[in-house]
Design a protein around this nucleic acid. Sequence first.
DNA 1: AAACTCATGTAAAGTGTTACATGATTAT
DNA 2: ATAATCATGTAACACTTTACATGAGTTT
Lengths: 194, 194
Amino acid sequence: MSLRHAVLGLLADRPASGYDLLKTFAISLGNVWSATQSQVYTELGRLADSGQVTVTAEGARGRKEYAITESGRAELHRWLTRVEPNRTPRNDTLLRVFFLGLLKPAEAEAFMRREAETAAAHHKELAALTTVAAGQDSFSAHGRLALEWGLRVTAAQHEWALWAEQQIVDRAAGGGGGGGHGGGDEDEDVPAQG
Amino acid sequence: MSLRHAVLGLLADRPASGYDLLKTFAISLGNVWSATQSQVYTELGRLADSGQVTVTAEGARGRKEYAITESGRAELHRWLTRVEPNRTPRNDTLLRVFFLGLLKPAEAEAFMRREAETAAAHHKELAALTTVAAGQDSFSAHGRLALEWGLRVTAAQHEWALWAEQQIVDRAAGGGGGGGHGGGDEDEDVPAQG
DNA sequence: AAACTCATGTAAAGTGTTACATGATTAT
DNA sequence: ATAATCATGTAACACTTTACATGAGTTT
């Protein structure tokens, strides 16, 4: 489970409360691994039960500050060096791309155009983060490596979406032939339900 | 839920059994959305219960062939055109990158080198698929758009990993100063447990 | 006959999302 | 006083993974 290690990793940097961690997820770590409030508090409880973190201070409004333990650090190190990253592919956008032939060309084109815009917007957001994420500490420095990944991939994604949109336009302009599905039914029009 | 729509999308192309679908996941669709045997059979059962697919034939060895219904097609179309793709970030590799400062420079470098190799290998695999996925039908054609995405992103990923590895080398060679974590503890050596 | 492939199904555990519920402290 | 922010927690539901369980038909 990666959320567990995300929490351990943040606590390895410095002690923090669940609320603090949530802020870090919101502004930086969440760009690579998102977590909900519910998940973070639940996970802190589990980590405390298993002795990988401990409550080091209790403050106002029930605030609890957690710190990583030696056992937690050992687990984190094991995960970083000996556990193969999970690469299970799960890309909702690309899944839709597979089925774009079920849409009218104009609808499919609109889909790709929108993807291009989304990629451009995402790229811009990340570029804006660059100036913000200027810390000199190791966590910020490595966060910038991840940020650079985001910049490169969103750029590639943007170019790809523009290219794919053109492919769809070209195919619609060329022969309507060859466009159908395996079923061989010519009546492949999409339902027009509201 | 996307698995449901992956199944509907495949059945919109042609009727198939769970076993058939599993093969499609294994050779093509699984590159963008993976599914287990257990999931596919369970989902087919649910879709049949809700009337989005029906059993159109039963063959040897208990084989059941499913076809999409009008209601299923309507749901698929709604999903394609009106449901925003889920973009929840969840990248196990990048999560680790955030915490690379917890490793010795040599370990962090090894991690990035390995990522570079993985990206190159993945790119090569996809390139090999290009020649295979040569169908003229719409499903294959759009699958090739997804494949192109894979080629571009794995290429970007490979270049990024090489760049990041160099960043780590440079930082290790430059001052050891500025390398510590927020905690300010100089004794940040990683545990050497086995 | 043995091995392999085809083919489906269920159970349990783990992980993630959404919604609900509560209350203290600080700023206006 | 009111609103905003700080701060934690639980319950229900949805989804994913892993393991188990079974058996028919085909090839060697």
